[in-house]
Design a protein around this nucleic acid. Structure first.
Lengths: 330, 330
DNA sequence: TCCCATGATGGAATCGTTTCCACATCCAGA
DNA sequence: TCTGGATGTGGAAACGATTCCATCATGGGA
């Protein structure tokens, strides 16, 4: 039978003082005689007293704590992002409540609801799906402080993003420079990069071939299916840009399955410099995003008292390895 | 200026009833006339009322919520495990508070402390480091309900583990069968598998060469250094077993750096069937662990009211790909 | 017609904390 | 000696929810 946790009353009784005095001593506010302070501290230590965050939060109104909503943690990119959030929160002494949305707006809404029930009033989120985000309006209006990370959020909340436009452009430029004319795009649930891809194509005066732009849902299977069908439908694609590491993985797998050699038959570039990109056979050329920083900065913004900039852009970097080659007609 | 969240009192006033009635209607306990129920529900909806988990927890004593302590989320294995925990918690309507220990007992202790301050009384944890775990005794005695996952925990708390003994043995058997006599072992912060490795060697009557057994700290750099130094000190190793995916990654990288071909010069087996194992050049033979299930089952045990078995063992599976070859003397 | 069981309802206590306020003590300055 | 500020201290209210208990109305059975 676990002994009830000691409360402030127990400490007060043990030290022979009132609860108010204990509270003052422990929180450092107000005055207390050195002797009293000593007694209280000793009693607290003896009873192994831990102030209940519940009681404090209730009284104070503000609950502290940071919410974190990501599609899923099995994806290394979000894992790194989450680690960044965790690091920042720890440095500011806040705890973190996480939820995996699975990129499903419905789940996101329910998770968000449970967060506000917990009294969480600051949230870092990778908004799910298409970012129409009727989910967020009510929460924002209710005073929830949310910072979007990695994907632009709906509404007026600040976001911390990577410079996707530059990243996509760098990838497309590189591929174009290699002579590729039929460049496929594997998009995910977040569709923003798709638009950037069209823009990047336009910037180098290449027409966008709609058939080469495919979007997958947020599952491994869907990603694989999208990649495989792209390669099969259009044997003339000589290069592919994958919008995230799951899609990149699918592209490599599908290419192998169809006996397409990388980079001889298809060149591949993917977003996210996950550790295995270098290990892949062949090592993958990637558009690196600072996932950890993304999370850290977003958490910082959410936790700081002063409102920060509405939009902070972190740089991307094209890291060239061995998955791209000059175009050879197939 | 964000409007204060509606409280039960506001709902009571809006519906023209007492707070007790509102509580009864909303929680479904006790009786209320259909007409009253209707009014309360309408008022609650109109005010967008969300009961405060803080108030409820305080009154009820139990706070709900599940703590999750892992070394770090950037490691895919722990990411998958965390996803499993999240999935289970969501299905039982509980929220999850996570912390990244970095495999540091000190950080673990501080995180654990902040968890109990939050009122969390059930925890799933991958115990940090060597598992001596003076961290856990006080928490356990204080009535915290913890379930260890992935690594055996200290003390009497239940754990959900993979059958590492069988996994290590399968790997060693396989390597031995291929003719390898100098098998290296790359261990991490958790040292349990090191012992199993010796046992497995003994089981096939092979002496353990202490110089071939190295342990790295929980960083990528340390893992790489360990792998590189192993290969350099002992050019006669023809096979390596890496105790987790970080170590496996390091082994592949170090081998490449030293111009050791896998599998011609060294065979490599690693723990964790992370998605990229198949993508690696060459595809890696692995000891697969059901990471997601590990988390799910552990969370289930922590959340269920009845105490479960003290130790549940999930199977591992040797997945043979192309990173091992018969021994050829170097 | 009376009584009591039943059902609906609201008041109030409670959980653990912080903080306002009142009270007591003490000492310096007039 | 009296006054007034400073200082140390404890009581009590408040936060938002649940729940015990008392109250009240109602209706059926004797």
């Amino acid at each position: 039978m676990p002994p009830r946790r000691a409360t402030i009353k127990d400490v007060a009784a043990a030290a022979g003082v009132g609860v108010a005095t204990v509270s003052r001593v422990l929180s450092g506010t107000g005055s207390a005689s050195p002797e009293t302070r000593e007694r209280v501290l000793a009693a607290a230590a003896r009873l192994d007293y831990r102030p209940s965050a519940l009681g404090r939060s209730l009284k104070l109104g503000r609950s502290g704590g940071l919410g974190l909503l990501v599609p899923g943690l099995a994806n290394t990119f979000y894992g790194q992002l989450a680690d960044g959030v965790l690091a920042c929160a720890r440095s500011m002494g806040e705890h973190v409540v996480v939820g995996a949305t699975g990129d499903d707006p419905e789940r996101e809404a329910s998770l968000l609801g449970s967060l506000v029930e917990q009294g969480v009033e600051r949230v870092v989120a990778v908004p799910s799906g298409d970012g129409l985000g009727e989910n967020w309006e009510p929460a924002l209006r209710a005073g929830l402080r949310v910072v979007f990370a990695g994907r632009p959020g709906p509404g007026s909340a600040p976001s911390v993003l990577t410079d996707d436009r530059a990243g996509v452009q760098a990838a497309v430029d590189y591929l174009g420079g290699l002579g590729h004319r039929s460049i496929g795009f594997l998009g995910g649930p977040a569709t923003a990069r798709e638009r950037l891809f069209r823009d990047a194509l336009a910037a180098i005066r290449m027409p966008a071939d709609e058939e080469l732009i495919v979007a997958a849902r947020a599952t491994r299977d869907s990603a694989y299916a999208a990649a495989a069908s792209l390669f099969q439908r259009r044997p003339d694609v000589t290069a592919v840009l994958a919008a995230d590491n799951t899609l990149g993985e699918a592209a490599v797998l599908a290419a192998r399955e169809l006996d397409l050699r990388i980079p001889r038959d298809v060149s591949v570039i993917m977003f996210d410099d996950v550790p295995w990109a270098e290990l892949c056979g062949p090592p993958l050329t990637v558009v690196a995003q600072p996932a950890h920083d993304l999370g850290y900065r977003a958490a910082e913004l959410a936790l700081r008292d002063r409102p920060g900039p509405d939009r902070t852009l972190l740089p991307t970097e094209l890291i060239v390895r061995n998955s791209c080659a000059p175009r050879t007609p197939r």
